[in-house]
Simulated scan of single mutants.
Amino acid sequence: MKLFLADISKIDLEYAQLLNKERRERVERYRLVDDKKRCILAGLMTRRFLGNAEILKNEYGKPFLSDGRFFNISHSGNYVLFALGKSEIGCDIEKFHYVTAVRTGKTVFNDDEMNLLLSSADRLGTFFNLWTKKESLLKCMGEGFHRSAKSVDVCSDVFEEKGKSFFMKTWNFSDYTVSVCSEENDFPKLIEFIGTEELLFQ
Rank of each mutant, 00 (worst) to 15 (best):
V102C: 07
G125Y: 01
T104K: 09
M114P: 01
L130M: 11
A121K: 15
Y98N: 13
T104E: 13
H75G: 03
I89N: 03
K86D: 13
S87Y: 02
A83W: 01
Y98D: 11
T126K: 15
L124I: 05
A121Y: 05
F109A: 10
M114I: 13
L118Y: 08
I93M: 07
L130F: 09
L117K: 02
G105T: 06
T126G: 11
E88P: 10
D122G: 05
F96S: 15
D122F: 01
E88T: 09
G85M: 04
N110S: 04
F127W: 03
C91I: 05
N110I: 08
N110M: 05
D111W: 03
V108E: 01
E88K: 13
L116M: 15
T126C: 15
L124V: 01
D92A: 09
E94T: 04
V108P: 00
A121W: 00
G90P: 08
L81F: 02
S76R: 10
E94A: 12
L116V: 12
I89S: 02
K95Y: 09
N129W: 00
L130S: 11
R123F: 00
L118S: 06
K95Q: 15
S119I: 00
I93A: 03
C91L: 01
A121C: 09
A83Q: 02
T107N: 12
I93Y: 01
F96Y: 14
L84M: 07
N110L: 06
I93V: 13
L124D: 00
A83N: 02
L130P: 14
H97C: 05
T107M: 13
K95W: 05
G105V: 06
H75W: 09
S76F: 04
F82N: 14
H75V: 06
T104Q: 11
I93E: 03
K86P: 03
A101M: 04
K95S: 10
G85W: 03
N110G: 05
G77C: 10
H75Q: 07
S120C: 10
E88W: 04
F96L: 15
G90I: 11
T107Y: 08
